[in-house]
Amino acid sequence: MIKRVIDTKVVNLDELKLEKFSAVGGKFEGESARIGQLLGAKELGYSYDVVQPGKVSCPFHSHAAEEEMFFIVKGTGTLRYGTETRKVRAGDVICCPVGGPDTAHQLVNDSNAELAYISVSTMMPAEVCEYPDSKKIGAYGGNSPSRLKHMTMANAAVDYWKDE
């Protein structure tokens, strides 16, 4: 059977091969599949994430360049956004625009069942993220395996003219 081009642009969530991840002693844990790469997306990144009860998939963070959207597919949890929180459930669509600490966001599975969601983001060639809980800043650039990735503490500022 010949695979049609249109068939390479569609995938069902049930057919995804999820990759498990865990960090910080299991505080951050989940399963994920990068759908955008799988389907050949060029300008948008999208993934499917499943988070077990009591877990969080990523640190509380904001973006300087990339906008994100989340669609809750299954379950319930809590959205942290800026200084506020609210319950979210299957069917909710969440907007996380570019900004500073006021747009920092995180999905927490504080329920007794799986929380599953689709993430969509603009794929910018350069990005800076702030992490208010840990007071870190991350700078990212390029799309190659050797892309720039640098994390530093927010209070570790260096003067622009230092060592010039």
Rank of each mutant, 00 (worst) to 15 (best):
I2F: 00
K3H: 04
R4V: 08
V5C: 01
V5G: 00
T8R: 12
K9C: 13
K9L: 15
V10M: 10
V11C: 04
N12R: 15
D14C: 09
E15P: 02
L16F: 03
K17P: 03
E19F: 07
E19S: 12
K20R: 15
F21D: 04
F21V: 04
A23M: 13
G26K: 11
K27V: 15
K27A: 11
G30N: 04
E31Y: 08
S32H: 05
A33C: 08
R34V: 14
R34M: 09
G36E: 07
G36M: 03
Q37V: 06
L38W: 00
L39G: 03
L39I: 13
G40D: 04
G40L: 11
A41T: 15
K42M: 11
Y46T: 12
Y48D: 00
D49A: 03
Q52Y: 09
P53Y: 08
P53A: 08
V56M: 03
V56L: 02
S57N: 09
S57Y: 02
S57T: 06
S57D: 08
C58S: 10
P59G: 12
P59C: 06
F60I: 04
F60T: 06
F60E: 00
H61N: 02
H63D: 10
A64K: 12
A65T: 09
E66R: 14
E68Y: 07
E68I: 07
M69G: 07
I72M: 10
I72K: 05
V73F: 05
K74S: 08
G75P: 01
L79E: 15
R80F: 08
Y81F: 10
G82Q: 10
T83Q: 09
T83F: 02
E84R: 14
T85Q: 15
T85R: 11
R86I: 05
K87R: 15
V88G: 05
V88T: 08
A90K: 13
D92V: 15
I94Q: 05
I94T: 06
I94N: 02
P97E: 12
P97F: 10
V98P: 02
G99D: 05
P101D: 13
T103M: 13
T103A: 05
H105M: 06
Q106I: 09
L107A: 06
V108H: 02
N109Q: 11
N109T: 08
N112Y: 00
A113G: 01
A113V: 04
E114C: 06
L115N: 05
Y117K: 02
T122P: 01
T122G: 01
M124T: 14
P125M: 01
P125R: 02
P125I: 08
P125D: 02
P125C: 01
V128K: 13
E130Y: 12
P132T: 13
P132R: 08
P132I: 04
D133F: 07
D133M: 03
D133R: 12
S134C: 09
S134D: 13
S134G: 09
K135E: 09
K136E: 13
G138D: 02
A139N: 01
A139R: 11
Y140N: 05
N143L: 10
S144C: 07
P145N: 12
R147Q: 12
R147D: 07
M151F: 13
M151E: 14
M151R: 15
M151L: 15
M153I: 10
A154Q: 10
N155F: 06
A156H: 15
A156E: 14
V158R: 08
V158P: 03
W161D: 11
W161G: 13
